[in-house]
Design a protein around this nucleic acid. Structure first.
Lengths: 238, 238
DNA sequence: CTATATCGGAGAGATCCATTCCGCAATGGC
DNA sequence: GCCATTGCGGAATGGATCTCTCCGATATAG
């Protein structure tokens, strides 16, 4: 059965368009061979793409993704119709990991530790690094759905910290999201370990600033809380 | 169309290579005319270049700078030999403004207010936005000299805050510099006023995190303080 | 050993960018 | 007024880069 080569369909539910076998226990299920290589490549590609686009920005060439994955460029295009679909899948992956992080946070007994865990996990997998692609790719239904779920869980994490009085009251969920977005960009210094060192230090400073001020020296945050409508409008493809 | 504007330029030895008249008191010293337009264009170009490169990154096209300055692209190349020289002059300008901010900070009576003033001024003129050009342009002598002076003054601002016990002890000058660098990038949301609103909110959080923690719950910053050698090595042209 | 599916990378076509060139307009001495 | 001069704006150029396609090479299954 020859797989259709160029079926560039919009709204492709399946992330890869390789023909997957119905029963993995059949003869094809060997961990070796071309088929397994394809599965591995899927994973390698997504990981590489996240790394590349998070550090070099969404304008990074697709070839850099393939190169970092140690895979020919054709293998990338065999799975994704183009750069746009790759970015879409990457957004969904990032949001799914955000959801996981929020769920883990809610399982923590301490609301503050849960919040910091959430923030650190999100930054660790560069949840906000894809924000600059807003407006450059089509937002499909899966993205919208995942985003809503992620935002609801984030609300829960923040609300719990608020209820426990462990987070300054004038900090909103969107403030936290934008903080994560802000810290998801790497400074891109020379050595990567030095980057994360600085990242961790600055993040620790910001986290300390999220605690309610001691005493009643509550100097409120300047300006007005960010607006959800405007935040979502960024993703409208221009 | 010709509006006489204050063109008092700070001591810039030779930012443009246009043939300047030997004696400014000659007939050419009029505030109108082509000559004055050239002076104005210098200023417009530097301002436009800072805005463009700060928001779009150092890879922004030179044409965007000319366009934002409302100037033909040839007028830019008449003053700067190319993109590299433009970026070099821009770095010097940014560091000079950093020096000014530090001097203003030291004039403040309150060390903490001086420190916050310094940080906010630096971020306001995107002092750290040019960090990504490190390694892509040659570092000339003027840049090196200005940088040293800026760093010495920054040390003074931070040392004063430390001496007054108004800044957590494990925060170094380089931490502050990297914080400024981190906040010099705009989130580049839709409306620019919304950008600055978010910027101000996140910055307020980070500033709150710089104060010494109440009581003795000093949880030290993670990792190790950033290294000056490595920080300077970023600018080595590869 | 042969048929088949997939891989890797070279190449086509288009886009974009840095830089230069040139016609045009404003200026100022006469 | 008149004309040489000077600087301005934008189109043209040459090169680099990026996305995506095509094709020979390679490994696997039976």
């Amino acid at each position: 059965m020859t797989m259709p080569r160029n079926v560039t369909q919009r709204s492709t539910p399946a992330p890869n368009r390789r023909s997957e076998p119905e029963n993995p226990a059949t003869t094809r299920s060997s961990k070796r061979g071309r088929y397994a290589e394809g599965i591995r490549n899927d994973r390698l590609l997504l990981d590489a793409a996240r790394e590349v686009f998070a550090t070099q920005g969404a304008d990074a060439p697709v070839s850099a993704v393939a190169e970092r994955a140690g895979v020919g460029i054709a293998s990338l295009y065999r799975r994704y119709s183009g750069k746009e679909e790759l970015l879409q899948r990457l957004c969904v992956l990032a949001m799914e990991q955000t959801i996981e992080a929020a769920q883990e946070a809610l399982e923590q007994q301490d609301p503050w530790l849960g919040l910091t865990h959430y923030i650190q996990r999100c930054i660790a997998h560069r949840a906000g690094a894809l924000a600059p692609v807003a407006g450059t790719i089509e937002v499909d239904e899966e993205m919208r759905r995942t985003s809503q779920k992620a935002m609801a869980l984030a609300d829960a994490v923040i609300a719990r910290a608020h209820a426990a009085g462990m987070l300054r009251r004038d900090v909103t969920t969107l403030d936290i999201s934008l903080l994560i977005e802000h810290f998801s960009r790497r400074p891109s210094m020379g050595a990567p370990d030095e980057d994360t060192n600085i990242q961790q230090r600055l993040l620790a400073i910001a986290l300390a600033g999220l605690r309610p001020p001691a005493g009643d020296t509550l100097e409120p945050l300047p300006g007005h809380p960010p607006d959800r409508e405007r935040y979502a409008a960024r993703w409208q493809k221009s």
